[in-house]
Design a protein around this nucleic acid. Sequence first.
DNA 1: TTCAAGACTGCAAACAGTTGCACTAAACCT
DNA 2: AGGTTTAGTGCAACTGTTTGCAGTCTTGAA
Lengths: 317, 317
Amino acid sequence: MTVTIRDVARASGVHVSTVSRTFSAPHMVNAATRSRVLTVAEELGYRPNRAARALTTGRTHNLGLIVADIANPFFPPLIKAAHAAARQRDYHLFVADTDEEPAAEEELVQAFSKQVDGVVLCSPRSSNKALERLAERVPFVVINRRLRGAATVLMDVGHGARLAVEHLAGLGHTRVALVSGPAGSWTSAEIRTAAEQVPDVDLVVVGPNAPTERGGYAAAARVRDSGVTGVLAYNDLVAIGLIEGLGDLGLSVPADVSVVGIDDIVPGRLSRPKLTTVAMPTAAAGRLAVDLLIQEVTATTSLETRLVIRDSTAALR
Amino acid sequence: MTVTIRDVARASGVHVSTVSRTFSAPHMVNAATRSRVLTVAEELGYRPNRAARALTTGRTHNLGLIVADIANPFFPPLIKAAHAAARQRDYHLFVADTDEEPAAEEELVQAFSKQVDGVVLCSPRSSNKALERLAERVPFVVINRRLRGAATVLMDVGHGARLAVEHLAGLGHTRVALVSGPAGSWTSAEIRTAAEQVPDVDLVVVGPNAPTERGGYAAAARVRDSGVTGVLAYNDLVAIGLIEGLGDLGLSVPADVSVVGIDDIVPGRLSRPKLTTVAMPTAAAGRLAVDLLIQEVTATTSLETRLVIRDSTAALR
DNA sequence: TTCAAGACTGCAAACAGTTGCACTAAACCT
DNA sequence: AGGTTTAGTGCAACTGTTTGCAGTCTTGAA
């Protein structure tokens, strides 16, 4: 018993097309008629059916957002910002989780395709070829992955990594470990190249590691054995795990070794010692991605990162 | 130039209705025809248009999920589980954030109404009256709010609170503070009544407080002044803030005072000391809520909570 | 007064599917 | 052999909205 445009038309004595226009092109209808239609619609509780509208216009006013893991603290701020940006322009947001399964990306985009005007893909792991196939089905923008031809939002983690290593160097740490992420990660590679370019620092790579607390914990022994006094970790979770692991080996942070993370997730602010970290502009990225999508502009943007100095780094004794 | 059911029909020499049926009622079409249609559809890259389908069937195969704050660590596990459950039954999930604005709840449900088969509302703050209005527009299930007539998923936080206070009592803490949440919160009231029922414990209520780290930090002085040795906090964020605040006042946890939180969010596991807390079954709640929604059953469920003992509680000296 | 230009509004055909009904042909029963 | 069921398919109407086109009525200008 849902009330349609026809009910409103009948009740206000005009043709359906007039009702339609009072909602989608108000300037085309006489002010008096318009207000009459509007009040009748209000009384009847009419709400335009977006699905039906999409059928003729081809625009759904829906967007899709695909992330690897909703519960990973890195993503929620991004999702929230994307949602806010979408909402502001009267778009709705589908959110999906691939559960770290690259194959799910393609499947989800396919499934979304007819129901959204575009999708934002966060750090996609599908092959370039697969992504190109998808591009034919639906417009999308990727976050944290370089992909020619597609709209792209990058966070300049390379710059952040360099700042982090320079910060360590400035504190006197000349032997620094890079506790890297998973093999084949774009971000991990980016971090490494940037870190290697800092002069006067011996960089030793420890990894690859799982991008989790556990991964960091497991790397502790190798970090100790490498004899470094400073560490840049692939992300905050790894950093937190590493600090725990070092503690269990009798090394204290920052007294014995300084650790800096990457991401600036909430738990990093809450754990002790408070984590020095490279803040990733996840909210800005989410917001920007949906803006690009809605405005259909194909651009590649690089967002700045910055170093947040807290308590997990200190001068070399 | 999207490929429709008509293109498939033409290319495989059958009527559109047959194509339609091979997708929505396969058993009604001859095996040979079906496989021919299927291969043709595959070749052409046909995918059913869910929006169009929704127009006639009235079922969109979409669900909405509304939470107060996506970035609050309490929600992501719930969202993830809800998504997984939806996905499993081939539903898509709209996710929305009210930004703690009760008015946004109603608006979002309205906006979703034609586009979803139902919505799950987490800890809604709208009035009963408003919710009843909404119930006429779209089926929904509420999480963590008692509402007669609507499908409901409750987490038995009362039981958890009682376990927590009993745990403190068992450690010798007979004077216990309840650092409460915001005024008017259903959960906060629930916690209080349960906590008050534990025998042989003097309960002093400190609050109301903002449900955040900052709220907990601010409550530290009053907790100290109340002379208690054990604390049950409204949630983990409050507990973490409180521990920080007590530390700044020269009181150490758990040596001087034992603190237990509620929720079991990730940062509680990662902060030091590791937080003893009442684990809320958020994932189970998310999963169950979408199952109830899809199966259209109106039931009231109460999910068990349990106490997770970690390092922020210890025996009274 | 006449005509052209607007401003509104109605008509009807899309959009991409679903579904009740009618029809055909084959299979099944006596 | 004749009648009845059944499986498979086609027909056409319907879902709620948009939109190009055409018609009506004012209004302004010549």
